[in-house]
Write a protein that binds this DNA or RNA. Structure first.
Lengths: 185, 185
DNA sequence: AAACTCATGTAAGCTGTTACATGATTAC
DNA sequence: GTAATCATGTAACAGCTTACATGAGTTT
């Protein structure tokens, strides 16, 4: 894989010809949650891949509008397949500021800790709901795996939301318990 | 937050003075899974933070070795607390090549799809096992939240491993089912 | 004395984001 | 006619990784 954007562009062009704009739009509605891409990556990549012979231009019009559509060449399809079946361990990177905050939560008092955890849970629940609304009707012939990855997102954020909920309960119990003790003594 | 490394450095110096080397080592054993940091970030950041008065140098020796330890100033502690309680939505970014491959898995045949899913499940299970072995004895007085984030990692990778296992079963059933039909017809 | 670990630091380079420029077409 | 959307592109910058340089102390 030359750069991080290569497989997305290749993959997006496999099912049908698309323009750079199309790719960006589709990425934002689909892979963005686990693999984002910007115009600054996509357009230069389309040129590189054309030069490398992995994709080719199809048509330059839609309506009267200027438009450059690309499709995979057989060489491009082969490259995509190679990447899919490659043996190298797949990259897996996470940047989760909420988790980092939790890591350092000892620096604040119990109430603030609770607020922090609650916020994190809410975030995951919001993402969860948003993912659930993505619901294109499965048609025969349409690729099935994209929808599957949506389910993965649901599973992940659901697990996280529930985990945070557990921590929340623990903290609530401690705060209340602590109050009781103080009242009782 | 100035840069991504700021809160880690600040947070790592809160519990006790550390050197840049210490910070890097500790990050690699703890936050790396959701927030990585390299020397190229840490050392320059230590200078910036010193100049800004958020941290200060403590001692310059340990054994006979050259060593620069830093600790939080009160201003630094305040900055850390502000970041912890900030209202801005926490950054959450994922780069998951395995998931991207699954997204495009329609491009390969059933057997390769299965192999791909199996590999992904194994990856998560491996990470899961590694996380489970991180088990520092909880001592009173030692911060508790770091250990909690380890549990979060366990929860997340467990959820993903199980989700992939489900997909795997589905694919296996389909492949076997397809065979049966072919054999029966 | 060789090898390893502790320890600090930087330069080059790669990747990716953001913001902007440009202009055509369509919807109101 | 004006606002929104479609569409392509780039330049500047921010952020981070990698590799290297350097050297002291420790272990074998």
């Amino acid at each position: 894989m030359l750069t991080g954007v290569t497989p997305v562009v290749l993959g997006m062009l496999r099912s049908k010809p698309r323009s750079g704009y199309d790719i960006k739009t589709f990425v934002d509605r689909s892979t963005r949650f686990f693999w984002a891409a910007s115009y600054g990556q996509i357009y230069p990549e389309l040129r590189r891949l054309t030069k490398a012979g992995l994709i080719e231009t199809v048509s330059r019009a839609r309506g009267g509008r200027r438009r450059a559509e690309y499709r995979l060449t057989s060489k491009g399809e082969e490259t995509l397949r190679e990447w899919l079946l490659a043996d190298e361990p797949a990259l897996h990177e996470l940047r989760d500021e909420g988790m980092l905050k939790l890591f350092f939560a000892d620096a604040v008092g119990p109430d603030d800790q609770l607020a922090l955890v609650r916020k994190a849970r809410l975030r995951h629940e919001t993402t969860l709901e948003r993912l659930k609304t993505v619901n294109p009707p499965p048609r025969p012939g349409r690729p099935r795996f994209p929808l599957l990855t949506r389910d993965a997102g649901v599973a992940m954020h659901d697990a996280m939301a529930k985990w945070y909920a557990g921590v929340e309960q623990m903290l609530v119990a401690e705060i209340e318990g602590g109050d009781d003790v103080r009242v009782a003594s």
